[in-house]
Every structure is written in structure tokens, then in C-alpha cells.
Design a protein around this nucleic acid. Sequence first.
DNA 1: CGCCAATTAGGTCAATCGGCCAAATAATTA
DNA 2: TAATTATTTGGCCGATTGACCTAATTGGCG
Lengths: 195, 195
Amino acid sequence: MRGPETRTEIIGAADRLFYERGFEHTSFADIAEAVTIARGNFYYHFKSKDEILSAVIARRVAHTTALLERWARDNPTPRGRLSAFVGMLEVNGDAIMRYGCPVGTLTIELSKLLHGSRDQVVGLFDLFRDWLAEQFRALGRDADAQALALHLLMRSQGVATLYTAYRDRDFVIREMAMMESWIDEVAGTQPAATI
Amino acid sequence: MRGPETRTEIIGAADRLFYERGFEHTSFADIAEAVTIARGNFYYHFKSKDEILSAVIARRVAHTTALLERWARDNPTPRGRLSAFVGMLEVNGDAIMRYGCPVGTLTIELSKLLHGSRDQVVGLFDLFRDWLAEQFRALGRDADAQALALHLLMRSQGVATLYTAYRDRDFVIREMAMMESWIDEVAGTQPAATI
DNA sequence: CGCCAATTAGGTCAATCGGCCAAATAATTA
DNA sequence: TAATTATTTGGCCGATTGACCTAATTGGCG
């Protein structure tokens, strides 16, 4: 009937369920129920579960690319863009508290499964890393832009994990402030308006 | 034949497999094969898989407690003890690269499963957090000892996750050095001998 | 109209899952 | 030695998994 729309819905539901329950713990029946289609239908769209996973990753790549472009559009300065990244921890707070970081947790799960799509997921980290490095480069840190980007990525991963563990919002707020201070240090700028 | 020894072996094998493959993805058959016993045997020792999980967590609590005591024994100064914690990232490097942090990854998995033993696992984080806070307190940071402990814990989690993703040893070495510098800052001490 | 992509509902399949149990065996005690 | 208890075995259970298949429809479009 709708064709590509059903396919899109399947990918969307799988994306959400893979995040909330994990890849392995999500069954075809779960996805079918979420989309309210017949079980047999997504063998018309996908030949295997791995194929759905690849489509989910592709979707995340597209969404992440769009997110980074939006951040760049909404924030003229590199410093402001870095704050947009830090702010993600608060914007997605509830989800992170329950399910952790979508990229980090999927990377870990696929690593333990020795799953072939692992590297594709790490590609999502690359998107953030390269985008962050670009901002640090714009702030005059050409030499160590990539290392600084990885450091900020590392911090967001650590905060996300401990947020899932302790569910302590104050901890997140505190660490976000520390990340902002750190950015100010390496950028050699004055602290921005109170955040 | 051996009774309690078999029970201990089951817990040990389950501990390793839960770490390497994840809790859900480890079956009774996997554990039985690792211990080379009949599958039915561990229903004599454990009534359910959750019971095995509880035993595994208890084992980890005991091992972690022993580890922290060893660190305290081998390092007379609080500063040295904090370095012992940081050094864990290198000592367990290969395992972390493949399977992530045993505590963090299990916490995430059980959180997604809404599993009842989740809080028990977070108790492992408590052990590290309290031990670290004790060291910061000994360094004169009474007021924010707990926050500093959580920050260090957060960093180790972030480094572990990105190590699993990028498998870049240089990144880990670099971040460990940054952690040492940060400790020196908050401790108000001179940098220790080159690490 | 007829074509054709899309969908439905259902069943089947081998494999594996956690869970369970009666019977055999080993170890201990009387 | 005989009786008792502790431990282990191997097969079986119902449920679920991913995967596959078929026949019957649906509905839009040329």
C-alpha cells in the first residue's frame, strides 16, 4: 500500500527498540507489534535482522549529520557549537538516564557479540569527533584538535554511563559545567555568559 | 563429587562469560561447556539464571573489595592510590578494549532489561566511588571529595567506552596522563615523578 | 480493465532458550 | 557393609527465536 513509508516505520521502530532494549533483546515480533504490521511483511522489506540493523545505522548517520548541521546553523561561533554538544546531555537527559548513550551502548553490545556492523556504529563516533575537532581547529587548536575532540567525546560518554548508573541529575549538571570550564581553558577564552 | 567447588567454578565461568558476551547472550549451555559439567547440574546449585547473576555480583563485590585493599596496602599515599586506580585502564587494557568496563557495561545492560539486580551492580560503582572519595578526603578535599571521586570514575568510564570503540592505545595513554595532571591540580601537589 | 508493488495472515522449520526432573553415581556416615 | 546423603547426569518440557514460504488480497496507476 504505502511501500517505502512502511519500510521507514520499520526502521524507526527498530531504531527506538534497539536503543531501549538492545539489539539482541529486540525480536521481530517486538518490531512488528510496534509498527502494527504482519510479521511476514518485513521479510518483504528486509531479508535478515542484520539488514535491519544496517538500515538503522544508516538512519542514525543521517540524523546525526542533520543534527550537527543544525547545531552549526544555530550557533555561529565554534564556542557556542561546543556548548550545543555539551547541552545534548541535558536535552536527552531522560533517555540517557534510562538507556545510556545510543552510540556508546550499541558499540559495546556489538563489540561483545563480535558483530560485523560494529565498525559502522563507530562511524557515528567519527561524525561527532570530526565535527568537534573542526570547532577546536576554528578556535586555534590546530595541532591537537582531534585529541581535544576525543577528550570531550570521552567525557560525554563517561557522564552518560554514570548518569545511567546513578540517575543523579545534579551530577550531570555539575559535570556539564566542568566541561564548559574546560572548553574555556583550552579555547583561551573568557568564560561565556553564565550557563 | 566436589560440591562447593563446582559451584565456585560455575560462578567463575559465568562471571567471565557475562563480561565477555553479556548477561543475556550467555546461555546455560555456554556456562556448562566452560565448566565441562552437565547442563542440568547447576539447577542443583542455582534455581535460576538470576540466582547465578546474584552470585556473580557477590563475587565481584568480594574481588573489588580485595582489589581496593591491595591498592591501599601497596600504595602508602593517597596520591599513589589514585594512580593505582588510573593504572587499571592500562592493566586491564586488552579486556577493556574488547569488552568494555565490567561494571559499566553490565549496568547498562541490566538497565535496558529493567532487571532487578541493576542496583546491586551499581553497588560496585559505590565501592570505587567511596574508596576514591576517601583518598581525596585524605588529600584535604573534604568538601567535594565525593564529587571529585565521581569525576574520576566518570573519566575512567569514558576512556573505557572510547577504548572499546576506537581500540587506540595512544588515546588511553594520553587520557591517563591527563587524569594524573588533573589529580595533581585538585590535590594541590607537585606532579609526581614522570609516569 | 489488467498489471504490479505492497500487504496480509498463516503456517513451518530447526535451533536455542530457561527451566525441570527422575535416575544414576559418588561420598559420607552409621 | 549397609544405609543415607550429596552430587551429577542426560534427557525432556514449553516457549521463543530468526528465517522462510505460500496463497490470498489490497489498491494505485497506466
